[in-house]
């Protein structure tokens, strides 16, 4: 059974496999204090009960001032590279990162938006439908932290109230240390609480916390998707999900091979 549920197509690399809920950066500003996935998530997995289209991918939008390092952060995570040269993002860019969370294939569609004011009208068209909003700022530039309020407001305007996970991310952590870092983080944590966001400090240059951060993002988004999906199915059409899956599995005209693309095609 497991073979039909594990991610198909190219196998997910080892460091994209998440079995337990990754921990927060600081308990002072975090979205979820639990250390394990919600009971229903693992239960659903046990029952092979999660195979819907909607589950498999979340849209993540990264916003923030120019030159805070949004692109660097994404490139460090998705490509494990760091480019010293600054190249402003034109409009928007995106990456797709595949995970296997609690045994279920899951992907993040990460939208990298331009920080330059002149591209705002283009980038903002891509805010809609975000499950996760990441507002990034430069830990060494307090102004960029102040601007995150506006960035978040703009991103939330395109989304339904309360439908998004919000993360506040301080970048260029490698440039700060000791008291200065603590001071910057304290201010950011304060703002994160105001925003109802989870706070993280990262460095794309050294890679510090980058993987942990995105794993956390993916896991929380995944968990929310599973729970919402279960809720819908239980409240509206309790048998639809199972029925679908049974029909698929029981479709004897198709061989085992056919389930692989199904999972892929829908993930």
């Amino acid at each position: 059974m497991k073979s039909s549920l594990t991610p198909l197509g190219p196998p997910v690399s080892r460091d994209r496999i998440i079995d337990t809920l990754p921990k927060w950066y600081t308990p002072d500003a975090c979205l979820q204090l639990r250390e394990h996935f919600h009971g229903q998530v693992s239960a659903a997995y046990q029952r092979r009960n999660t195979g819907t289209v909607g589950l498999k991918l979340s849209k993540v939008v990264v916003v923030g001032d120019l030159y805070v390092g949004k692109t660097s952060l994404i490139h460090r995570f998705c490509k494990n590279v760091f480019d010293r040269d600054y190249k402003a993002t034109i409009g928007v860019d995106f990456e797709i990162e595949r995970f296997e969370i609690a045994g279920i294939p899951y992907s993040l569609q990460i939208w990298d938006t331009a920080g330059q004011e002149k591209f705002k009208c283009i980038a903002s068209a891509y805010y809609r439908g975000a499950q996760v909003i990441i507002t990034a700022f430069d830990l060494t530039d307090v102004q960029t932290l102040e601007h995150t309020r506006q960035w978040l407001e703009d991103a939330l305007r395109e989304n339904e109230m309360g439908s998004c996970f919000i993360f506040l991310v301080g970048t260029k952590k490698d440039l700060l240390s000791g008291a200065a870092c603590e001071q910057a983080e304290a201010e950011a944590v304060h703002l994160a609480n105001e925003m109802q966001a989870e706070y993280w400090s990262v460095s794309a240059k050294t890679g510090e916390n980058v993987k942990a951060f995105f794993s956390r993002v993916a896991a929380l988004a995944f968990e929310q998707s599973v729970l919402q999906d279960l809720e819908k199915r239980n409240s509206t059409q309790p048998q639809v999900g199972d029925g679908d899956l049974i029909r698929m599995e029981g479709n004897s005209s198709e061989t085992q091979e056919s389930k692989r693309p199904f999972s892929l095609g829908c993930c």
């Binding site: 991918l57 849209k59 992907s107 091979e257 829908c266 993930c267």
Partner: peptide, 14 residues
């Protein structure tokens, strides 16, 4: 399956 197996799915095509 033979042809579609590799497609990530419509949801993946932003």
């Amino acid at each position: 399956p033979g042809v579609e197996g590799t497609c990530v799915g419509q949801g993946h095509l932003p």
